[in-house]
Design a protein around this nucleic acid. Structure first.
Lengths: 242, 242
DNA sequence: ATTCCGGATTGACTCTCGTCAAGGAAGCGG
DNA sequence: CCGCTTCCTTGACGAGAGTCAATCCGGAAT
């Protein structure tokens, strides 16, 4: 109770801000509010386990959620890390399956849980909502395909470089400009997750990630200070990442 | 012209048989027929290239289609192999992207191309169709997640065993029974693709796949005769595949 | 049968990356 | 300032899987 204030949220307003719900009617919004619950997690808390049945899908309001699976040998593989205004768990609602991954808070987090029932109702009465949902799942699927491509065709170093470049792209310039790739050389990015988690996300062990950073540094391509990484030679990185 | 007869297809009937369209109205079916084109491919022909803009989505009527990406170093990774009454290419319709993979016929094939426009029309007017589409994409996404899990957490041999077991499951008993895993021991399965393609699908090179088969044979778990593989010790395989 | 050819197999070698174990470095509470 | 934890780094080593090259096998055409 004595923790930092956990300001509860105006659910209606929060929902309105979310990409999926920008265009629904006020009446639909009321229905949605009735079917939405706030969920607060402390860092390290588990939201759901691999194998749990889905109750709905989630929106991240604040904090950071990691999706991962674990083998019984104790190995763990991070599939995705989600931040504010990103959603997850929609797809599993449309199958008679349980979660193939577990979800854990990487930081104190605030989520919205949208009940599965209301999703189906909205699909019935609002084709635009259905289209948005389809678009979201398509993007997610595309992301997985890209990941598979990277795991299969690229080396560890290449995956790291690609990741750094993608951080550079979205961070520094106006991210919405159609003109990507201004070759402005010295870009500094901040890793949004610990190196341990990043390594797993990139299908590496922390030791290997560390060595790759070391190697890239020696070649004069990057500089690492904690989670701040400066890309000193973007051209060189690009031809490596390919 | 002198080839084996390529019997053209009653598109309406064919569409009716497909999972996505079992419940649409007759009027919708007429519209669909008007927006559907037959496409015939010879073995080895390319349906679309990585980077092509999508015209619609495809249904396999006859034959076999492989989806894969290629790196400029010439490496190739098979993402999926699709057979009759399976569809592909829906997801990319909902993004402003081009195909992330290319599609090639592994055998002489007959496809239906459903124009993208009619898909959006159907979503507008038929929530049930939208739901089916979502379900299909969810299944595909789930499949990709499973693949990533396998690539990340399992060894090559484990992936091979899992694949063989999945072939055994769907083939031999009534596939729709809720009771999976009857431990009936000597099951013979037929590889639906060449070992070269299978290897790539499992993220292996052909040599490694060959060695894995050899090793499993030596341990008395399977017998290999060409593309016929007999699972002689399902229990042993299961504890390996885990 | 004989030849040819693509796919499959085998062997020898290499290399990337994971494993195991031992340090650092940075933050935090006492 | 000290000890503690947590995260990261570094080193030595090994195992799994890829590469290259030679060979084998089976089916199709001649």
């Amino acid at each position: 109770m004595s923790h930092a204030a956990v300001p509860h949220i105006d659910i209606a307003q929060a929902l309105r801000r979310l990409p999926l719900f920008t265009e629904i009617t006020d009446e639909q919004l009321r229905m949605l509010v009735g079917a939405t619950h706030e969920r607060d997690l402390a860092r390290g808390e588990i939201l759901f386990q691999q194998g749990d049945p889905p109750k709905g899908f989630y929106y991240v309001i604040r904090g950071q959620i990691k999706l991962a699976f674990a083998s019984r040998q104790g190995n763990e593989k991070v599939v995705e890390v989600l931040g504010p205004s990103q959603s997850f768990g929609e797809a599993v609602l449309f199958m008679n399956r349980n979660y193939p991954v577990f979800a854990e808070a990487l930081a104190d987090s605030q989520l919205l849980l949208i009940d599965r029932g209301v999703v189906f109702t909205l699909i019935e009465e609002d084709p635009h909502f259905a289209r948005s949902l389809l678009a979201g799942m398509a993007i997610r699927l595309h992301g997985m395909v890209r990941d598979v491509e990277a795991y299969s065709l690229n080396s560890g170093a290449q995956r790291v470089v690609s990741y750094l470049m993608s951080l550079g792209d979205t961070h520094s310039p106006g991210a919405s400009l159609p003109c990507t790739r201004p070759p402005a050389d010295p870009i500094t990015v901040t890793l949004p997750v610990s190196k341990h988690v990043l390594a797993s996300r990139l299908n590496l062990v922390p030791e290997t990630l560390s060595r790759i950073f070391h190697d890239l540094t020696e070649r004069g391509l990057i500089n690492v200070h904690g989670s701040e990484i400066t890309l000193t030679d973007v051209a060189g990185l690009r031809e490596l990442g390919d």
